[in-house]
């Protein structure tokens, strides 16, 4: 797994490893770069990349994880997106969904709007906030080995788990998913529920 000029992990390599041999894993990508990252790993129906709804990615993961308790669900989002919905960590901790993982790709910046600094740049510790909310497995991830261990934990069903992955801040090429959001939801529903999804 490669690192960038800052010595931190490259975001695309992190996501490619987390989504490797994914089986039935369902992934929600927070708006902005994480949505492009999960798309770069494979534009498949089991991905729901978000073009909006900032602050709600983790809660979407909760609703999906509760509805599909036998499938692993990973929310892969950014530090700015997570900070906007930080209260949802309390909501999720109380519900204790064993199949839900929240992975924050933390580059300490708002990447889509001109690389302004986020609060994590100034010492705000997201993993500590998740731990404080009551999520049992909270990790700070900085190495390739820790990413691989995180991948195994996502599939392990001992969640909920929260991971703050420190990544390099250098921008990477856009890999855009379909922008018509009705397609994005319908293809995931069909992947999960079969053709009956469209008759519900």
């Amino acid at each position: 797994m490669r690192t960038g000029p800052t010595g931190k992990l490259l975001r695309r390599d992190v996501v490619a490893e987390l989504l490797r041999d994914r089986g039935g894993l369902l992934a929600i990508g927070g708006l902005g770069a994480p949505a492009w990252d999960i798309t770069a790993a494979g534009d498949v129906p089991e991905n729901l990349p978000l073009w909006g709804g900032m602050g709600a990615a983790a809660m979407m993961g909760l609703g999906l994880a509760l509805a599909q308790p036998s499938r692993p669900v990973a929310v892969i989002t950014g530090d700015g997106e997570m900070l906007m919905g930080i209260g949802s960590l309390a909501t999720i901790a109380v519900q204790r969904p064993r199949n839900l993982a929240i992975v924050v790709l933390d580059n300490e910046h708002y990447g889509e709007t001109g690389m302004q600094e986020t609060a994590t740049r100034h010492g705000v510790d997201l993993a500590a906030m998740a731990r404080g909310a009551g999520i049992g497995d909270c990790r700070l991830v900085k190495t390739a080995e820790e990413v691989t261990a995180l991948r195994e934990a996502i599939h392990g069903g001992a969640g909920p788990l929260f991971a703050q992955v420190k990544i390099d801040e250098a921008p990477v090429p856009l890999v855009l998913p379909p922008r018509e959001a009705s397609i994005l939801q319908a293809r995931m529903r069909e992947a999960v529920l079969g053709p009956a999804a469209h008759l519900q």
């Binding site: 809660m59 919905g85 529903r189 999960v192």
Partner: peptide
């Protein structure tokens, strides 16, 4: 913790068939 969380959650529920 705030009502907008529910909009995200119910979208996720629908994705999963609930």
């Amino acid at each position: 913790t705030t009502e907008e969380e529910g909009i995200g959650m119910l979208f996720g529920a629908w994705l999963g068939g609930e």
